[in-house]
């Protein structure tokens, strides 16, 4: 573990806590894409399949349970909780996110580190996570301005993988044979997709107004 990865995990944790806070306390998911949340639930479900078969550390297992629990409960809230569901913007959240799942699965079957069931699904989760934010970014474009909590959520979610890139650079220089091109490229693509959002976020943030 290094400071970059810890900062990345804490940023990721903060993003799900901000979203849970918004949904649980003010019972609103306005501006939040259910489709992105569904994709993230699939990302964690396929990435943490080894949670019971391979123990890495208490921290690792605990964080996996937190991310699995939070992503599925957010989907549940947005789909089935009456008050929250009422604030879901179904008409605007129309990105065909299932069209992202199949290409990621095919790509994982073609490009992976090991051709085993767990490894292919793990690689699939990497590719899917790289594009999972697209429905949310499209929804953002349509709803124009969003409340600060949603803006913070997207900012933190985009930032965590950027910190992971620093972690990979650090590990590359400190650990022999630490080379994971697939993870690195997927992580880079994922972070670059936020570039546009980061630009506007910092513009508005510096301006002191909400994110538009």
């Amino acid at each position: 573990m290094n400071i970059f990865r810890l900062a990345g995990d804490m940023t990721h944790l903060a993003s799900v806590l901000v979203l849970l806070l918004k949904i649980h306390t003010i019972k609103s998911c306005a501006g939040v894409s259910l489709r992105t949340q569904e994709l993230y639930a699939i990302v964690f479900a396929t990435r943490y399949l080894d949670i019971f078969t391979s123990f890495v550390s208490v921290y690792n297992t605990f964080m996996k349970l937190v991310f699995l629990g939070s992503s599925f409960s957010i989907v549940w809230y947005m789909r089935y909780h009456k008050a929250v569901h009422r604030t879901y913007d179904r008409e605007q959240d129309t990105f065909r996110h299932w069209f992202l799942v199949l290409p990621c699965l095919v790509l994982a079957l073609l490009i992976h580190e090991k051709f085993t069931f767990l490894e292919v699904l793990w690689t699939f989760s990497l590719y899917l996570e790289a594009v999972a934010i697209l429905p949310q970014l499209v929804l953002l474009q349509r709803t124009r301005n969003i409340d600060n909590l949603t803006g913070q959520y997207i900012f933190l979610l985009g930032g965590y993988r950027g910190l992971y890139i620093l972690n990979w650079i650090y590990r590359y220089f400190t650990e022999p044979h630490f080379v994971h091109w697939i993870t690195w490229i997927a992580g880079l693509v994922q972070t670059l997709l936020y570039a546009d959002f980061f630009y506007y976020y910092f513009l508005r943030f510096i301006g002191g107004r909400g994110v538009e």
Partner: peptide, 10 residues
């Protein structure tokens, strides 16, 4: 910290 799948990151 290496898991059997080689993945020690979240």
């Amino acid at each position: 910290e290496e898991a059997e799948t080689g993945h020690d990151e979240l």
